[in-house]
């Protein structure tokens, strides 16, 4: 594998027939879709996880929570199909034109609108990890001892203040854990992303353009590694790289938790 060298990571041309293997677009695509998905999923899932047990009317709590937990169990290929037949038509008809009209001055929202794109893949990832992050952080929040809430309320906190200053901080590390699990899931998600990202080895500024992720490259090309054994080794190296990226991202996330929990004592 040594024959690929650093150019494997730094170059962008992926042409198995010509024996050129540049994984940069897939690396960027993986990180970009995951981080985009995370940035949309975290506020949404934490919002629901906090709102549901605290403020939602009693009768709707259980059903909503159950439905969301069920969503976490749906196979990703089903998400992929749903993405192709429902999500993409919806996005291309309503959301993308709107984004282009309003935010078109940013390079991220310019150029031709493709259905399958980095943004579509990020959105399907969001849909997939929201239930996951939500149900884990809901468990974590429910596990906060009632004494914490009572302590805050007894000191004159309003309900919202009790949640924001006592319950959520108590559950903080668990919630961060839930987010990291969600990120791990997004980084490794293969099927739904393959179906929605457009599968093109290219780094484009616009989120409307197709892209690729490492997991998708491996899944798509491994079955018939057209470029022969070299192509196969390139894919194995890609897998190794995906593993490395996942470990690295997790390590960074853990480091952040560690710093947060160290900083806890400061006023």
């Amino acid at each position: 594998m040594g024959r690929f060298g650093a150019s494997f990571i730094t170059t962008s041309t992926w042409d198995p027939v010509a024996g050129q293997f540049g994984a940069w677009p897939a690396i960027v695509g993986t990180l970009l879709t995951s981080l985009l998905a995370l940035s949309m999923a975290v506020p949404l899932s934490l919002g629901v996880a906090i709102y549901l047990p605290e403020f939602a009317p009693g009768p709707i709590r259980r059903p909503v929570a159950t439905v969301i937990e069920l969503l976490a169990a749906i196979p990703s290929v089903v998400y992929g199909l749903w993405g192709i037949f429902v999500l993409i038509p919806f996005l291309t008809t309503w959301v993308y034109p709107f984004l282009e009209a309003r935010l078109g001055f940013l390079p991220f929202f310019t150029g031709p609108v493709y259905g399958p794109s980095v943004l579509s893949a990020s959105i399907i990832l969001t849909v997939m990890i929201v239930p996951f992050i939500m149900s884990v952080s809901r468990e974590v929040l429910l596990a906060v001892p009632s004494g914490q809430r009572e302590a805050a309320l007894a000191l004159g906190a309003t309900r919202w203040e009790a949640v924001s200053t006592a319950i959520v901080p108590y559950a903080k590390s668990g919630i961060i854990g839930a987010v990291i699990l969600g990120l791990g899931r997004a980084l490794g998600e293969t099927m739904a992303v393959t179906m929605l990202i457009g599968n093109r080895h290219e780094v484009a500024a616009s989120l409307f353009a197709p892209g690729y992720t490492m997991a998708a490259v491996i899944a798509n090309e491994f079955a018939d590694a057209a470029g022969g054994p070299i192509h196969e080794s390139a894919l194995i190296l890609m897998a190794l790289l995906l593993f490395g990226v996942t470990v690295l991202v997790n390590a960074i996330a853990r480091l952040m938790i560690w710093r947060v929990s160290l900083g806890r004592g400061n006023t």
């Binding site: 001892p145 004494g147 914490q148 009572e150 302590a151 000191l155 004159g156 203040e161 806890r264």
Partner: peptide, 30 residues
Amino acid sequence: HRQRVGMVFQRPNPFPKSIYDNVAYGPALN
């Protein structure tokens, strides 16, 4: 009312914050 009527519970229930922040919690909040 709850600010005027303090409560100490059966199980000590400090917040997982610093000692300082625990004591400062009420006066800062209110």
